[in-house]
Design a protein around this nucleic acid. Structure first.
Lengths: 185, 185
DNA sequence: GCAACTATACCGTCCGGACGGTAAAGTCAA
DNA sequence: TTGACTTTACCGTCCGGACGGTATAGTTGC
């Protein structure tokens, strides 16, 4: 058993976040209730509100968690200065996430349902990353196209409208890889 | 004055749908209430429930309206049998919608917030259209990439996370046009 | 041609349940 | 014994939906 209270607190906290994310997916983003999250996380409602003093704070934390996960993964690859490293890493990272079967961050939708403004940090972050990708790209238009395509797939998964199948994704990725490695310089 | 009762009914119906769509955008997709829709549409709640017997039915109608608008526009271009006509038309249509400043169909998000399953028709339709695009494409991978990129932008607008600016969109479209017209054989 | 009846379109009220949030008391490790 | 953590109990509000009623416009029987 964890004797460290802060560790216990952290695990409760992340249990709550995971519960919220899962519930947003299964019940629909608009039906995310504090009672349901508390029950799913194995905490009383009061306990939940101790960690997140309001529903808005909970949703903010959900968005923040998504962004920090994303950011950490990507910064690691940014030491390599070669052309097209970033967009390739972006595609690769996305593919890997997909292969692992990681569920899409449905908490984002719950945040959106409550208040669209909660997604403002996402917009800022994505803008920043697109800037870096373009600056590092041998062909900014192609890199932007790839960036958009990844977002297209991510959005489809988020919205539960999965349209492209595995083969098609693989085909597109192969096509992209060929252009990205073959046309640099 | 319209003496045709069905015409009057239809206008009330579409007024309601437009009101719902607008409210989903301004208040957040999760805060769409029947009272608010009724008030915005200039109808009583009873009147609203006469036209749409439940909230779910209203949301279904919202989704259906989106799909039928989309479908009509696209079928028109499908007579031309040349290669890559479809994906080009798809991009063009999307661009035009964007230029007109048409607001994204936020009703879709309201439907998603209530019940993710309501988007199943969207998935079916999009899958169907992607099949047609690929069958008509000289390079299916490129066509799929373009399809995904368009969806990426659409999703960003839908989620209120507009990341790419006009110039970047134009750049990508030019790039695509060049490949689509230049590589067909 | 008119009375009886039905269908369509809409209104206003009410209720039961869900939900976000508060308050106060209890537990327990350090 | 103090303070982080958790619980139980409760409140006020909002919302979906049911319901009863109204008014106008056909439709039909005679």
């Amino acid at each position: 058993m964890p004797t460290d209270p802060s560790a216990a607190a952290k695990s409760t906290r992340s249990r709550i976040l995971a519960a919220a994310d899962a519930l947003a997916r299964s019940d629909g983003p608009g039906h995310l209730s504090l009672d349901a999250v508390a029950q799913r996380a194995g905490v009383s409602k009061g306990g939940l509100l101790y960690h997140f003093p309001s529903k808005t704070k909970l949703l903010e934390a959900l968005v923040e968690e998504f962004l920090s996960n994303f950011d950490g993964m990507l910064r690691a690859r940014e030491t390599d200065a070669r052309k097209d490293v970033l967009i390739s890493a972006y595609v690769e990272f996305f593919l890997n996430e997909r292969r692992l079967g990681d569920p899409p961050p449905s908490g984002l939708l719950a945040a959106l349902a409550e208040d669209p403004e909660l997604l403002a940090p996402v917009r800022r972050y994505e803008r920043d990353f697109l800037d870096r990708i373009r600056a590092n790209a041998s062909d900014p238009a192609l890199a932007t196209l790839a960036f958009l395509a990844v977002h297209g797939i991510r959005a489809m998964e988020l919205l539960n409208v999965k349209v492209v199948d595995e083969e098609e994704v693989a085909e597109v990725v192969t096509w992209l890889k060929h252009r990205l490695t073959g046309e640099s310089a």
